Measured scan of single mutants.
Amino acid sequence: NRRVIAMPSVRKYAREKGVDIRLVQGTGKNGRVLKEDIDAWLAG
């Protein structure tokens, strides 16, 4: 149960899109989840 590193704005964006942020692979520094990662996850 790893802790997800993401800015609050990215967490909010994921919530609005209905994405469980824990399932998204972060590509930022130290595995940080970026807004682009959410978009990529939604695109498949």
Rank of each mutant, 00 (worst) to 15 (best):
N1M: 04
N1A: 12
N1V: 14
N1S: 13
N1W: 03
R2I: 15
R2Y: 04
R2C: 12
R2D: 15
R2W: 04
R2E: 14
R2L: 14
R3M: 06
R3H: 15
R3K: 15
V4N: 05
V4T: 05
I5H: 05
I5A: 05
I5R: 08
I5N: 08
I5L: 07
I5V: 12
I5C: 08
A6K: 02
A6R: 02
A6D: 02
A6F: 02
A6I: 05
A6S: 05
A6N: 03
A6W: 02
A6H: 03
M7Q: 14
M7Y: 15
M7P: 11
M7W: 15
M7S: 15
M7A: 15
M7H: 15
M7V: 10
P8E: 07
P8D: 06
P8N: 10
P8V: 08
P8Q: 10
P8W: 08
S9V: 10
S9K: 15
S9F: 10
S9T: 09
S9H: 14
S9D: 09
V10H: 02
V10N: 02
V10I: 07
V10L: 04
R11S: 04
R11L: 07
R11K: 09
R11Y: 07
R11Q: 05
R11D: 02
R11T: 04
R11N: 03
R11P: 01
R11M: 07
R11E: 04
K12N: 08
K12L: 09
K12S: 06
K12M: 08
K12Y: 08
Y13H: 07
Y13T: 02
Y13W: 05
Y13D: 02
Y13K: 02
Y13I: 04
A14W: 02
A14T: 02
A14P: 01
A14L: 01
A14E: 00
A14I: 01
A14G: 04
A14Q: 00
R15P: 00
R15I: 11
R15A: 10
R15D: 05
R15W: 12
E16Q: 13
E16S: 14
E16H: 11
E16C: 09
K17L: 12
K17D: 01
K17F: 08
K17Q: 13
K17A: 09
K17I: 08
K17G: 04
G18R: 11
G18F: 09
G18E: 08
G18H: 11
G18V: 05
G18Q: 10
G18A: 09
G18N: 12
G18C: 11
G18T: 05
G18M: 11
V19M: 05
V19P: 00
V19H: 01
V19F: 02
V19N: 00
V19T: 03
V19K: 00
V19D: 00
D20H: 06
D20L: 07
D20S: 07
D20N: 11
I21P: 03
I21L: 09
I21F: 04
I21N: 00
I21Q: 01
R22M: 11
R22W: 12
R22H: 11
R22G: 08
L23K: 13
L23W: 11
L23S: 10
L23I: 12
V24N: 00
V24H: 01
V24I: 12
V24T: 04
V24E: 00
V24L: 09
Q25V: 14
Q25P: 14
Q25A: 13
Q25Y: 15
Q25D: 12
Q25G: 10
Q25W: 15
Q25T: 14
G26D: 02
G26S: 05
G26C: 03
G26N: 03
G26A: 08
G26I: 02
G26Y: 03
G26F: 03
T27M: 06
T27L: 04
T27V: 03
T27D: 02
G28E: 03
G28M: 03
G28P: 01
G28H: 03
G28S: 04
G28D: 04
G28K: 03
G28C: 04
G28Q: 03
K29W: 10
K29Q: 11
K29E: 10
K29D: 09
K29P: 11
K29R: 13
K29V: 10
N30Y: 14
N30A: 11
N30Q: 11
N30T: 08
N30G: 13
G31W: 06
G31F: 09
G31N: 09
G31Y: 08
G31Q: 09
G31P: 02
R32Q: 09
R32G: 06
R32K: 08
R32H: 08
R32N: 06
R32D: 05
R32S: 10
V33D: 00
V33Q: 02
V33I: 15
V33T: 07
V33G: 00
V33R: 02
V33Y: 01
L34F: 10
L34E: 10
L34Y: 10
L34T: 10
L34M: 12
L34S: 09
K35M: 11
K35P: 05
K35Y: 06
E36D: 12
E36H: 14
E36Y: 13
E36S: 15
D37S: 02
D37L: 00
D37Y: 00
D37N: 08
D37G: 01
D37M: 01
D37K: 00
I38P: 00
I38R: 00
I38T: 01
I38H: 00
I38E: 00
I38N: 00
I38C: 02
I38Q: 00
D39Y: 04
D39I: 09
D39C: 06
D39G: 04
D39R: 06
D39S: 05
D39N: 11
D39L: 08
A40E: 11
A40M: 13
A40S: 12
A40D: 11
A40W: 10
A40K: 13
W41V: 06
W41M: 06
W41R: 04
W41L: 06
W41Y: 14
W41K: 05
W41G: 02
W41F: 13
W41Q: 05
L42I: 14
L42H: 06
L42S: 07
A43R: 15
A43Y: 12
A43P: 06
A43S: 12
A43Q: 12
A43D: 12
A43F: 12
A43K: 13
G44C: 08
G44I: 13
G44M: 15
G44T: 14
G44Q: 14
G44L: 14
